[in-house]
Computed example of a mutant assay.
Amino acid sequence: MAQFGYTLMCEQSGPRELVRYAQAAEDVGFDFEVSSDHYSPWLVSQGHSPYAWTVLGAVAQATSRVELMTYVTCPTTRYHPAVVAQKAATLQLLSEGRFILGLGSGENLNEHVVGEGWPSVDVRQTKLEEAIEIIRALHTGDLVTYDGEYFRVDSARVWDVPDSPVEIGVAVSGEASIASFAPLGDHMIAVEPKSDLVEGWMQEHDGESRAIGQIPICWDPDRDAAIERAHEQFRWFAGGWGVNSELPTPASFTAASQFVRPEDVAEQIACGPDLDELAESVRPYLEAGFTDVALVQIGDESQDRFLAEAAEPLLERLRAL
C-alpha cells in the first residue's frame, strides 16, 4: 500500500510553527514528513524560509514514528557534500533511523546566494554525482580523501555515523538522470507522475526501491478562499520545473507569474472542501507506480484547521484509492 506524507513547507511557515505542525501531522496518521530546504521563499507573499536542518533536528525530537526526509537538499553549491554528509548522519542518529536524505541538483533561487554562480544543467548533474559519491564514502565512518572534477575532500571523517548508512533519494526528471543516479541512489524522487520514470528506476533496483512524489493541494471550507490563497502563494508552480530551477529571486518568480490567473492555478491544483476531489488529484501518482506521495497544504494560516478537520478523513480517502 502507498504511503502518504505531510510537507513541512519552510517557504510558508516559521520554524516553531513547522515543529508544531510536524507533531500534529504525526498524530493524525501521516506516514512520513518531508521538508523543503530553501534559502528564499518562491514568492514574497509566502514570507518565510528558516533553516531546514535545524527544523528537522527539532522535529526529530518532537516526533517518534514518522519518517523524515529532505525534499530536497542540493549538496553542491550552498553546501559542500562533506558538510551534508555530517548533517545527514547526525539527523539519522537524532531520529533513531527515521531519516532519508533527499538530494537534487538544486534551483538558482537558493544556490546563487553564496556567489558561486549558477552552472549549466550538465555541470549540475556531474557535481551531484560526485557529491553522492563523497557522502556515501563519508557515511562509512572511514577517513576520506577525494579528488574529483568539481570537489575535493582532504582527510575528512564523519565521527558520529549510524550503524546503517543513511538511505539516499535522488530527484530525477528523465532517462538521462535515471541512468546517472539510479546506480547511486536508494530511492527515486520526482515531481511529475510519469510512469516511465518509475519503471526505469525500478528496473535498476529490481523493484526494491521507493518512488517518492509530491503534490500541492489547498483545502478550505470555502472553495473561493482556497483558490485565492493558492493563487497568492503558489502561482509560481505554473511555470514548471524547467523555469523554476533557473529564476534567481522571489521577485523573479513574481514577475514570471504576474499573468497567471486564479482559474489557471485552480486547473493545476485541487482547491476547496471536497476531500474526494483532493484525493483524486493524487491518483495519477499512484497509477504511475509511486510508492509514496507527500501532500503540500498551501498556506500557513490554514495548517491548524487542515490538520484538525481535514487531514484524517483525507488520509482515509487516499488509502481507499
Rank of each mutant, 00 (worst) to 15 (best):
S164G: 02
D186K: 08
V123A: 13
E309H: 11
Q297G: 10
R136W: 06
L91I: 11
T70E: 07
A60N: 05
A171R: 10
E263C: 09
F259W: 13
V153I: 09
L286V: 01
E312I: 03
L103S: 11
Q303A: 04
E149G: 01
T90N: 14
Q268I: 11
Y51M: 10
P162L: 04
Q86S: 09
E111L: 04
Y71R: 05
D196S: 08
R229L: 10
S177H: 01
C10N: 12
A211E: 00
C218A: 15
L321V: 09
E67Y: 13
S64I: 00
A226T: 00
A320Y: 02
I298K: 10
Q268G: 11
E107H: 13
V83R: 05
V243T: 14
H205T: 00
P216A: 14
V113A: 15
E280F: 02
F99M: 07
A256M: 13
A255G: 08
D220A: 04
L109M: 08
R305Q: 14
I168R: 11
S40C: 10
H80I: 02
A58T: 09
G57A: 15
G272E: 03
R223F: 03
W53C: 11
N108L: 06
V44M: 09
A182R: 12
P250M: 07
G174L: 05
G239F: 05
L314S: 04
R157P: 02
V55A: 13
V260D: 10
V59T: 10
R305A: 14
L94K: 05
V265A: 12
G174F: 08
H139F: 03
R261G: 08
S120Q: 15
E133D: 12
L109K: 02
R319T: 04
A22D: 06
H38V: 07
S49M: 06
G213K: 01
A52G: 02
Y285E: 00
Q203C: 07
V44C: 06
E246S: 13
Q268N: 08
H80S: 12
A255R: 14
I135Y: 10
V158W: 01
S120I: 07
D224F: 00
V282R: 08
G240I: 12
Q92M: 01
A58C: 10
D142R: 15
E263M: 12
Q23F: 01
D154W: 14
S302D: 09
R229I: 00
S13Y: 03
E199K: 14
G213Y: 04
D37G: 01
I189G: 02
A251N: 05
A226K: 08
T249W: 05
D196M: 03
A225C: 00
V172W: 02
E204G: 03
P262I: 13
E204N: 10
G5E: 07
W219D: 01
D224I: 00
A270H: 14
D163H: 11
Q46A: 06
D160M: 03
A156F: 08
V44S: 15
V59A: 09
A311H: 13
L56K: 10
C74F: 06
I212E: 00
T73D: 02
G47L: 04
P183H: 11
Y71D: 02
I227P: 00
F151W: 05
P193K: 10
A88D: 01
R261S: 15
A58K: 08
R319I: 03
D37Y: 07
